[in-house]
Simulated assay, not measured.
Amino acid sequence: MRALTVHPGVPGSARLEEIAEPDAAAGSALVEVLAVGVCGTDREIVEGQYGAAPPGEERLVLGHESLGRVLEAPPGEGLAAGDLVVGIVRRPDPVPCACCAAGEWDMCRNGRYTERGIKALHGFCAERVRVEPGFLVKLPPELDRIGVLVEPASVVAKAWEQIERIGRRAAWFPRSVLVTGAGPIGLLAALLGVQRGLSVHVLDRVTRGPKPQLVRDLGAAYHTGEVSVACPGVDIILECTGVGQLVFDAMRSTAPGGIVCLTGISSGKRLLEANFAALNRGLVLENDVVFGTVNANRRHYEAAVRALAQADPAWLERLITRRAPLDRWREALDRGPEDVKAVIELSPPSPAPPRSPPPHAR
């Protein structure tokens, strides 16, 4: 069968090749892969910046944002042939730490976790994969065209869960949220903010292409420029770029008692001059919180499925701005200036008939 593989640490080593059928030891469920999403992590692995092959192997099968269809599954696991599924990316460490033992592998404390398509486990960009049933999340049929968005949506579902947990430390009645960055994570974060009834603002540097209209069609406001000018004094900020200046500006721009969630990862290549003494004073005196979040566990995937099922499917499909077949995988990795989410299709589902959005979708 065909798979997209890379030699981690070797730039330009990605290639489409024939590999063996998946080993049954990898999982008792056999899944036909329909599509995988491409994100910055995949591009960094292809560029040789990141990634690790399984022990004893040189090459890694790419792909951690998946959509598949069950071909066979053991009885008693809640799965049947034909079910649409998404594979969970992270696996707990073998020790395990206290968090992994409790199913909170996204909060692993000793770093010995593994991740499909990223760290020491083959990914989903192969025509067929084996997966442990407990690491498959079932999707409703109406997500057949956009189920590949579940993995990035799980990241923001976790972010929102933690924001709300932190907010309960005091009497808290948030009204506004600013999302910095209108990429897939930012737009999905904005969607979940709208679903919570908040006044949502999105800040990005682009002025053309699909992003501004995607934001406005959510009923949210689109901004460019500086955080402090575009949207000062918001209750919540989700920082989705990792740009150092934006991170710093976000920490200075909330209302008292504000919460800043950092989901973007900085490259560390640019120095930033900042008055951290003044920042410290503001954070302390206003009871602000700044925290980081990454990855997701099963309940976050399930929350993501519910959020996407409530959204306008036509709006969600507009997030996927490029679809490339497996044999033209390079087209998905070569990010265009107006791309939001690129997807590699291995075996795309049949076109679905037109559907009306759910009555409660915005």
Rank of each mutant, 00 (worst) to 15 (best):
P349D: 13
R112V: 02
R205P: 00
L60N: 02
V340H: 01
A342W: 03
E226S: 13
V10P: 01
E151P: 04
D23Y: 06
C100W: 08
L191M: 06
G78L: 11
A52G: 02
G103A: 04
D339V: 05
W172H: 13
A14N: 02
L283C: 08
L279V: 07
L214K: 00
A304T: 03
R128H: 13
F291Q: 04
G219D: 15
A170H: 10
A278R: 14
G87P: 04
K158I: 04
A230Y: 14
C261L: 03
L203K: 03
V177R: 02
S66A: 14
L214D: 06
L272H: 05
I265F: 12
A80R: 15
T114P: 00
R59F: 02
V215M: 10
G68S: 08
V234L: 12
M107I: 05
A352P: 00
N280E: 12
L272W: 08
A120K: 12
G258Q: 05
T41G: 03
R109H: 08
P358R: 09
G167E: 10
A157N: 06
A81T: 13
D312R: 06
Q245R: 15
R130W: 05
G193W: 10
R355Y: 11
Q49I: 03
V46P: 00
L316G: 05
V340M: 09
P359V: 15
V156M: 04
L271N: 15
V150R: 01
L285V: 06
G209P: 01
E17Y: 04
L262E: 09
R270S: 07
F291P: 07
G87K: 05
D93Q: 00
A20M: 01
I118R: 02
R91L: 13
G186Y: 06
A24C: 02
W105T: 01
G78F: 10
G197H: 11
V247F: 09
Y50N: 09
F124Q: 06
L308Y: 06
G219H: 10
G68A: 08
I259N: 01
A303Q: 14
V229C: 10
L218Y: 10
E115Y: 05
R335I: 13
E164N: 15
R43A: 13
L203F: 04
P357I: 10
R270W: 09
A221S: 13
W160C: 02
P140V: 14
I236G: 03
V215G: 07
P212W: 11
H300A: 05
C100E: 08
